[in-house]
Design a protein around this nucleic acid. Sequence first.
DNA 1: CTAGCGTATCGAAGCGCTTCGACGATCGAC
DNA 2: GTCGATCGTCGAAGCGCTTCGATACGCTAG
Lengths: 334, 334
Amino acid sequence: MTTIDDVARAAGVSVSTVSYALSGKRPISAATRARIERAVRELGYRPHAGARALASSRTNVLALMAPLRVDVNVGVIMQFVTGVVTRAREFQHDVLLLTQDDLAGVDRVAAGSMVDALIMMDVEAEDPRLPVLRAQRQPSVLIGLPRDPGGLSCVDLDFEAAARSAVDHLSQLGHRSIALVGSPQAVLDRHTTYAQRMVRGFESEARRVGAQAVFEPCESSHAGAVDAVDRVLDRLPEVTALVVHNEVALPAVLATLRERGLDIPRDISLVAVCPQDVATGQPQPLTAVDIPALTIGGVAVDMAMARLERDEPAETRLLAPVLTPRATSAPARA
Amino acid sequence: MTTIDDVARAAGVSVSTVSYALSGKRPISAATRARIERAVRELGYRPHAGARALASSRTNVLALMAPLRVDVNVGVIMQFVTGVVTRAREFQHDVLLLTQDDLAGVDRVAAGSMVDALIMMDVEAEDPRLPVLRAQRQPSVLIGLPRDPGGLSCVDLDFEAAARSAVDHLSQLGHRSIALVGSPQAVLDRHTTYAQRMVRGFESEARRVGAQAVFEPCESSHAGAVDAVDRVLDRLPEVTALVVHNEVALPAVLATLRERGLDIPRDISLVAVCPQDVATGQPQPLTAVDIPALTIGGVAVDMAMARLERDEPAETRLLAPVLTPRATSAPARA
DNA sequence: CTAGCGTATCGAAGCGCTTCGACGATCGAC
DNA sequence: GTCGATCGTCGAAGCGCTTCGATACGCTAG
């Protein structure tokens, strides 16, 4: 292993000069810097991460807790993760991956000084990890919105507004009977707030525009989708529009509607709440409110860095929804 | 931050005694050990990862390079990752996540001593990362099979055998005209060997059992699936069985067959090569060769640890395929 | 001509841990 | 009663880096 000592010797300067040349924390003459850079290149020098962390109490690593179960929406999670990793790299940080259920992991990596900050996905209303996060000296950022952020930064899509904009869009097209096919019951029971915020926005906006509204949770499977659609048709036979907030069930929902003899958008309009690539990857491009997972992941990193580098206080950011009309929404028939 | 010094003082012993008590590398009397453990607990002591890495040249971190693009099969990747993270924890290791394209990342984390070993997914025949991996002092494990492993450990499903067992199963049911709907052309072009091994196994086994065989690549989209199915029906009108090795296109393939008036398994049998949960999560449970992604991820960690702890030499492990007959394969009609 | 300043560099301390060699005490064997 | 092992513990060195204070030098201002 080549160390900073080797570099210093090769460049004919002291160790501290090398350190300052590489970090830029003190002025170094152009000539000296050049000699050092040359030595670094020729020796293939890489600072030892552990030594650096020990001396500077900065690790240049971020922890990311991701739900690695298969029941949740894998695609969206992957995008969050990608967003985090990509943006982290732009800040010279690497990402340590923890599983959602690894409560002890938070303490291990934070108290053990393995990371500079933590990012946590899929937060629940009363998430048991929150107190643990608050106990650490490193800042953390939540993707999602607990009941009480209390000192932790949060970022998420404004699902309430997303639901409202979906209902609004449909209402403006003349629809008066709208159903929400949502997250699985288990997700609601878990008090994952995005699901609840979605329902709240849906119901309040329907009330405001004077539309009939029913909400049905939907398991993330083919059978679950069939069930949910049938329950909707049963509870609200005059339904002319659907808001679907369940990427996994989406294809099955579409298929079931078709099987029930309903044409989209002739008989029934549909607005999905899902990532853009899911919306455009279906047999029919879906009118949808985008879930900008990549962006959200990136913003989470930005927020972590803001606290780290300029120790800005914790804040909550809710991203405004963007609805893109595509092929699946049309005026209600008179 | 509480340090090992604090613990030593609290327990009334020297620093080295604390270290030995915690690592177990030298015998410590039960009484002393108890005092130390008590101090650790009361002070909430956590060893500083960087300091430990510096002193011991062990980081207890594994690097995992995962393809975080969306075009590949996200679900399977997630399972690999989960398998790796879960198993790594059993060896007291954490996982640092790198993106596939981050070639410099390999050098950064390995040469910078951030990790003890590297695991790389989605290996191509002539992967440009291989020389970089070979240049590091840390061992690496590939998930996949390059043309020349040359000193690197490899683990993967035996896709050639998987294809053979699928063809065999169909052949025994009397099918004589079999098509393989496979990976996207882009994956083949990239020389991802699992796709090639699949095709090779498919074609050789079809030849052996004397069945007609055609292979069609298939884009991972609805349109791509429709295309692929139509091309198959066009090239081999008498086809009675399909092997599908493309989880993303799977639902669309099933839907297209139905749309073309073909009933499964009455008119056409189907064997998928996909993770078990995908096979059983379809509208109809699929006869399938399991891709045991979780297991493979775990085995990758085992192999890394074997080299680390008992420095065993590099080896290649191909997991034997398991075909489970379900609802989509039936005897060919006479 | 000198006081004072900014610039470029150096030396040394210290970050928190592991590990090696040493040492006193205890014990069984002769 | 003595000798060597064995056991439990300690002290100190050292892992590779950052950072603080000091220093040396060349300037400019007065």
